[in-house]
Design a protein around this nucleic acid. Structure first.
Lengths: 126, 126
DNA sequence: TCATGAACATCTTGTTCATGG
DNA sequence: CCATGAACAAGATGTTCATGA
């Protein structure tokens, strides 16, 4: 949550995934592995395939940031067996607002990274 | 030198610096710390400040890749003392061609990364 | 088997130290 | 001090293992 100055090179995968997970929680896309499936599908043609551990770590970050909380639910599957899955919601006391601030910060970094990459194209290919 | 499939998230800083260093050797920008100064200056407003260790590691990579070789030269400074500095040149047997192939590969990755970031902007801000 | 994690390993990068002008 | 490295530490991420339903 600390608004640290972006002092490094390109943004970290973790921040990128937290951004997507916030948006997917807004859109109620499901539990962790379902969101992972969607991301793997959507980025397949861009050669990026996130893994499950990083998804869980990102969600855990968002919980520790005070943005999301977990709700365990029983989910019936096709074999009439029940499995417990974890859904995420914005914490009622400022979670959504914190999420929007986080997204705004990441937007700044996305724009910064795009500038760096476009500069590299301009500087090195002529 | 292996043309490995870009399987990860965004590109590594190392590849980014190797790209710039190749271009700067083409343009004869000087020795390592001079090139570092230029990069630090040019990316200052984008919040990116590479450090000297990563520059040396990138140059070492390019030497190990068979693209560059080192030439030590004595450089007089203002105090009439002499210091040995290291300049880099393309190896005569295919070094330049290998450098151009490397640059072409990085270009592909730069474009891929820009697509990923622009997709994130489109997907998460509306 | 799927879903959720933790634990472990590795790879990348940043920081500090060493050497020689 | 500068220039070049090496060595070490820290961080980020990938891989594997554990647990329960």
């Amino acid at each position: 949550m600390s608004e640290r100055e972006s002092t490094g090179f390109l943004m970290k995968q973790r921040a990128f995934l937290k951004l997507y997970l916030i948006t997917m929680v807004e859109m109620k896309k499901g539990y962790a592995l379902q969101m992972l499936d969607i991301l793997q599908h959507d980025f397949k043609n861009l050669g990026y395939r996130p893994n499950h551990a990083e998804i869980y770590r990102s969600l855990d970050d968002l919980v520790e940031d005070g943005i999301l909380y977990r709700v365990k639910k029983l989910q019936p599957n096709m074999n009439s067996k029940h499995k417990e899955v974890v859904y995420y919601h914005f914490v009622s006391d400022g979670g959504y607002e914190a999420a929007m601030r986080y997204k705004a910060n990441v937007k700044t970094d996305l724009d910064r990274c795009i500038k760096i990459l476009r500069k590299a194209v301009a500087d090195n290919y002529s």
